[in-house]
Design a protein around this nucleic acid. Structure first.
Length: 219
DNA sequence: TTGTGTTTTACGACCTCC
DNA sequence: GGAGGTCGTAAAACACAA
């Protein structure tokens, strides 16, 4: 048995003893899937091939087991940062290389950050959509109020014409008719403006005061 | 079965902090 | 200067539709 075979044999034994912890790359019996050749070697594999420290093949595994991931997740929930003491403890508890634990935390932090950005985006999007709906509602309210104003103007005009008819024989009737026809503002003449308090209001433009004077004739 | 998109593991480059 | 962080990306594993 050469060195590689010894390593594989050891891995097989370990994976049988700790099926939830060790997930060796060594193909199991009946497992036909050949490992695809990597362009970039992982450090542990490179070390193993060189026969260096820790390079006896014991850590030649890829996907972490469910149990390992579960323990790492628990630890991550505790604290997203990884002090070297915790890293070493986790590594020995899970039978992993401390480097693997560090890498797992790096990747987990990246995923967590992505998720946070995604959540933030969703929240902003919802807020934007709510604002758009509210704007539509306000626009429609403005339209409704303008219609009401228009109806009020029509009513005032009708009243004015009735007054004109009533006073047609009076000496001042001609001047009232002229002024009313000249000064009556119509719906389209109103616009958004600002009152004395600086609040937005529907104002008669171009001359709101004239409008008020015109109204006062009928009060 | 195969092509394709996604997830997971791992690494190098670079940065910050002590 | 070393340890440990982020960022970008390669590559393997995995999921899944066609």
């Amino acid at each position: 048995m050469n060195n590689q075979n010894v390593d594989d044999h050891n891995l097989l034994l370990i994976s049988q003893l700790y099926p939830n912890v060790y997930t060796p790359l060594v193909p199991q019996q009946g497992e036909a899937k050949p490992a695809r050749r990597r362009k970039r070697k992982s450090k542990s594999v490179a070390v193993a091939e060189e026969g260096g420290a820790g390079g006896n093949g014991w850590f030649r595994k890829r996907k972490l087991s469910d149990e390992q991931v579960r323990m790492l997740e628990l630890s991550f929930e505790d604290d997203h940062k990884l002090e070297s003491e915790r890293k070493d403890r986790l590594a020995s508890e899970l039978g992993l290389d401390p480097r693997q634990v560090a890498v797992w935390f790096q990747n987990r932090r990246a995923r967590w950050k992505n998720k946070r950005v995604e959540d933030e985006y969703t929240k902003l999007k919802n807020a934007y959509e709510t604002t758009v709906v509210e704007k539509c509602r306000l626009d429609s309210e403005v339209l409704h109020l303008k219609e009401q104003l228009y109806e009020a103007e029509r009513e005032i005009q009708r009243l004015a014409q009735r007054v004109e008819g009533t006073l047609s024989n009076s000496p001042i009737s001609s001047s009232v008719t002229i002024e009313a026809n000249h000064a009556t503002p119509f719906f389209g003449d109103y616009d958004i403006g600002f009152d004395a308090e600086g609040d937005e209001n529907l104002l008669y433009s171009p001359d709101y005061i004239d409008g008020l004077e015109w109204m006062s004739q009928f009060m």
